[in-house]
Simulated assay, not measured.
Amino acid sequence: MRKFLLALAALVVAVASAAAGWFGVKAWKASQATGESPSTASPSAAATSGDTVDLTFRVSEVDASVEGLFEPPACGDTWTPSSDQANGVLPKVDASLRQVAGTDTVTVVPGYTTETAGLGFLASEGSIIVTRDDVVVTPGWGAEFVPEYYVATPGETTLTQSNVEFTGATLCDVADELNEIWEGFDWSTATEDEITAKQDETAAFNAEHASLTPGTYRVYQWSPIILGEPAAIARVLSEEGITGLAGLQYNAGYTALYDDPLVQEHCTDQLDAEGNLLSRNCDVPEDVLAEALERAVPVEYIADVPPAVAFSLAAEFTVE
């Protein structure tokens, strides 16, 4: 299972135990000016040739193309990066601190900007790194690369719509203590009293960390910026309304891809007593999905540049 799906599975337990979640309120505050002047990535020649090439989208190949480009710093590392664009794209991030039911809660809003008109690219939904006094305290799920297709325009910020929330209880310098509470716990054999005891222990842990530890917090967004063939096929699919590319293996049943009998074979419907669809569960093998996603792609959509990693300026706030 991909790591981001494991993170989502872990979230279910966290929510059940009153721990803070992964997705937050989708809102945007003013982003900081970067002062950067990104370079541009030009499409290949033959911009109006009408030539096409058959391509498909494989998330495993996208992941492989960025492997080794950047190793996120570990919990406890001292880390102070420089903001840097890649392939004409600069991440931008906003972080706002507020109280939610008495708990310090930080909402992080990721996005991208460019100086290249109508630039389409693959990038992360919102990979973040959090430091306190320049020491890494990122939640364990904060560095995952989940690729999606975006189009950025000059002077504007394209939001990823995958906001992130964290609290003091989820930061990596204390999160192991929460994990220890539930480590080895068997829900299938636990009594109601045992479950209640664990939930009470978790609530006490969350209350202990309801206030963020004092210090200067900096939140960075980073991402590989991918053009080339993967972005070109993603553009064609986006024009058809097919998005959420990283999760299509499981979500294809809710897209036009479900019209393909090969995809249908790997989906199961849950119906109510009257035959109405309640849910559709899919697990489509990558080879089957790749066949369903193959398209003729105009060569002018393809920019011949390798993936590179970009870093935002820090969104900064101080806790006294």
Rank of each mutant, 00 (worst) to 15 (best):
L159P: 06
G142Q: 06
V106C: 04
E165I: 06
A152Y: 02
A152P: 01
G140F: 14
D133F: 05
E165M: 07
T113G: 13
E165D: 10
G142T: 02
W141N: 12
G168W: 00
S127P: 04
W141E: 13
E180W: 07
L171I: 03
V136A: 11
E180L: 12
Y149P: 05
A143G: 15
T160H: 02
G118D: 14
C172T: 00
P139A: 09
F145S: 04
E115K: 15
I128M: 12
L159M: 10
V146R: 08
T160D: 07
S162N: 12
V106I: 01
N179K: 13
V164P: 00
G140H: 13
F166A: 02
A175N: 06
V136L: 10
V135M: 11
T105P: 00
R132A: 04
V130A: 07
E156D: 14
N179R: 12
Y149R: 10
T170W: 02
T113N: 07
P139W: 10
G111K: 02
T170K: 12
S162F: 15
T138F: 10
A169E: 10
E177Y: 01
P154G: 13
F145M: 03
G111H: 00
L171K: 00
V106K: 05
N163D: 12
T114K: 08
E125Y: 11
I129M: 14
F166P: 00
A123S: 11
L119Y: 11
T167E: 06
G120W: 03
S127K: 04
T105K: 01
T167R: 11
E180N: 14
E125K: 15
D173H: 09
P110H: 02
D176W: 07
T153L: 13
A117K: 15
A152C: 08
G120L: 01
L178Q: 09
V108Q: 03
Y149F: 14
V130E: 04
V137T: 08
V109R: 12
D173L: 04
T138K: 11
T157Y: 03
V108A: 05
T116N: 15
V130S: 09
G111R: 03
S127A: 15
G111F: 00
I129A: 12
T167D: 03
P154A: 13
P139F: 12
A169I: 00
P110Q: 07
V151F: 09
A117P: 15
E156H: 12
T138W: 09
S162T: 10
V174D: 05
V106W: 00
V164W: 11
V135K: 14
A152W: 02
A175W: 07
P110W: 06
D176F: 11
T138P: 09
D134N: 15
A152I: 01
E148V: 02
